[in-house]
Nucleic acid binder design. Structure first.
Lengths: 214, 214
DNA sequence: GCGCCTCGTCTTGTACACAAGAATCGGCCG
DNA sequence: CGGCCGATTCTTGTGTACAAGACGAGGCGC
């Protein structure tokens, strides 16, 4: 079983992003090691990687804990996402290298899941994330790495759970428009759509923080 | 002697940023451990931190090496710096919390060093970095962390060595203008100055790559 | 009774040892 | 003579033991 550290990392990361870890919770090395059935060494590495991702904070000699998000952090987060995802969309539109068919299919599947009202928010979230990442990948080498720290955040992952029917439809429409802008090669258009898309999500975040518990 | 890992990290980081490590050079754990007189454990941690900073790439089971920068990476780097440092300047101008006196003193000292033509490029680089960081710090909590990956790059650190007399003066003038914009609280002005400041540096980078060997 | 100091425990930091996968060099076969 | 296969060697990944610092509880002095 190779890549023990990566397994622990993925596991913990999933728990934090899924909101199954309460912010501020301590992450003791030995406890985690026992829980995952490994030694402290790979756990340490996993914790450092989480810190690099901005998901945990480790204080020297005092251990690691799940990162705590403050309100002003959320505001800054939305601003930066709007800026950087906008730039990613611009470069994706002008640089080529985007699989428009795959993007369209992601939209189709998202809208299907929205039709079937079986609390498909998790699946929609996953598909949405995949769509955004596809755009990021087409934007270069540095930008995707920067965006990881802004996208993989618990609060962002919960956005779709808070969307109203109207907001959901608007979001889907923006995805379609984004694809059209990219297909046209119009960088400004793509950036503007993405910018609006993110700001709209930010408004939902500000409006009702956690209307859906857990 | 506590914080062994941090010491190794700082040392290696300095070597990479100072250009004393050739890109692509392998970083073997045992070799480094012996060189620093420590065990492999803190060396490992240092290497992972360097990877998180984008200064090294580690391939599982194949070790770490000093990151290699391609030309298109540099172009993307300049774009992103212009965008994000511009945003940092905007927030610094509108948010307050900037020590304008300290910034002005940094400018004074930089210009003094430029007057004394004793190859003071390293010192100017250091002061310039400090000025930029002061602006970053005033911009929030997330942005400074993102900027680390764009600022602490070997190529950026060499910029001042490549500046002509004219470019140097223009750069200093932009610093002064930036401070004025921040003092006025004009976010758009501050962002525009910073944007131009970075783009100008980018032009120098593109024009003469490494006119000053080592 | 309150505050300070000290001792004990707990957790992380580092060193060391072993195991597993990768690269390389040599030999062998076609 | 060239290519392929195997063994050796080298390097990293993981487990374990020990040391050092931090936190808390308890006792002592004022």
């Amino acid at each position: 079983m190779s890549q023990t550290a990566t397994r622990v990392y993925d596991e913990l990361r999933g728990e934090i992003l899924g909101g199954r870890c309460t912010p501020g919770a301590r992450l003791r090395e030995e406890e985690l090691a026992e829980r995952f059935g490994v030694s402290r060494t790979p756990v340490r590495e996993a914790l450092r990687r989480l810190e690099a991702d901005g998901l945990a904070v480790v204080t020297p000699r005092r251990g690691a804990e799940v990162v705590r998000w403050r309100d002003e952090d959320i505001a800054e987060l939305v601003e930066l996402r709007a800026l950087l995802e906008g730039q990613a969309a611009r470069r994706a539109a002008t640089g080529g290298g985007v699989d428009l068919v795959a993007l369209t299919e992601l939209c189709d599947r998202m809208e299907e899941h929205a039709g079937a009202e079986g609390r498909a928010a998790d699946e929609i979230t996953r598909l949405n994330l995949e769509l955004h990442r596809a755009v990021h990948r087409a934007s270069g080498r540095l930008l995707p790495d920067l965006l990881v720290r802004l996208i993989d955040v618990p609060v962002v992952r919960r956005t779709f759970h808070a969307y109203s029917e109207t907001e959901l439809r608007r979001s889907f429409a923006q995805h379609r428009e984004l694809i059209e802008a990219i297909a046209t090669g119009d960088g400004d258009w793509a950036a503007a759509v993405m910018h609006a898309h993110i700001r709209a999500a930010g408004a939902t975040l500000r409006a009702g923080r956690e209307p859906d518990p857990r």
